[in-house]
Design a protein around this nucleic acid. Structure first.
Lengths: 136, 136
DNA sequence: GTCCATGCAAACGATTTGCAGAGTT
DNA sequence: AACTCTGCAAATCGTTTGCATGGAC
């Protein structure tokens, strides 16, 4: 978590206490929090933080490739501090998202009709279902 | 398109002219329109249609499984009248979405750690890249 | 000291809702 | 006639922005 902080300084971030709180909450977090959840968590420590700061920081992190926006929940964005390529499974009951660390790129070949008109740079697999907690 | 209309009547829809215009616009549409685009198209024919009617109808169609919401664009929902399972490729420049009709389900096996706690009912593959039009 | 970040509140875009009147069955 | 749908406007939700102050470098 030290190299973690110096890493962001090196990326041109000014490290404010609020940002450190956000980074600390995100570091190693596998829960795919929403902006609201991040806001709530940081607010425990800094009751005056604003949404603006949270959103600004999340966007700055995304812009610098330090954070992935997960577009799997139609209702809101989720954030994933793990920027290694991977996939997700989401529970349709509780909206919980879990990571799927499998590289499917070998098997995900596009049909010629699409590969001809599309220069594909990445892929993301979404699994839908019901998690153990919600299956009673 | 006739069976198409009687089909919706059979599903318990009251068929108003506005709804027929929406259904006609969607029928066979492979462009993955947004609610706004559907609204604009229907407005050509019915200048007084409201967003409420468009959204109500889209939701009614989704609820009855006649329309798929495509959650691939972080900015807004897209709608796909093709409810057969398939996948999508999206251009990161112009947000164009094209269909990918390949069944990957055989190759998309989940690791035990996830399959143990998740009862998966479906999957969706998203491809990202740049379409031919946007590649200059 | 410079410049960027913060916090507040107001703005925004997409979507939803309450309601009275109109239309479909 | 019953009941749903429509259109309007207002409300809501997630997210963004303008701006004056404060803080990191």
């Amino acid at each position: 978590m030290e190299d973690f902080i110096s890493k962001f300084r090196g990326l041109g971030f000014k490290l404010t206490p609020q940002r450190i709180a956000i980074l600390t909450f995100l570091d190693g977090n596998t829960g795919h929090p929403t902006a609201e959840e991040i806001f709530a968590a940081v607010r425990q420590e800094y009751p005056t933080v604003s949404f603006a700061t949270v959103y600004n920081t999340l966007q700055a992190l995304s812009d610098r490739g330090q954070l992935t926006e997960v577009t799997i929940d139609p209702e809101r964005k989720h954030f994933d501090p793990n920027t290694d390529p991977h996939h997700h499974a989401m529970c349709s009951e509780c909206e919980k998202i879990v990571d799927v660390f499998v590289d499917y790129s070998e098997t995900l070949s596009l049909p010629d009709t699409v590969s001809g008109e599309f220069n594909v740079t990445g892929n993301h697999v979404e699994f839908y279902g019901v998690c153990g907690d919600c299956a009673e």
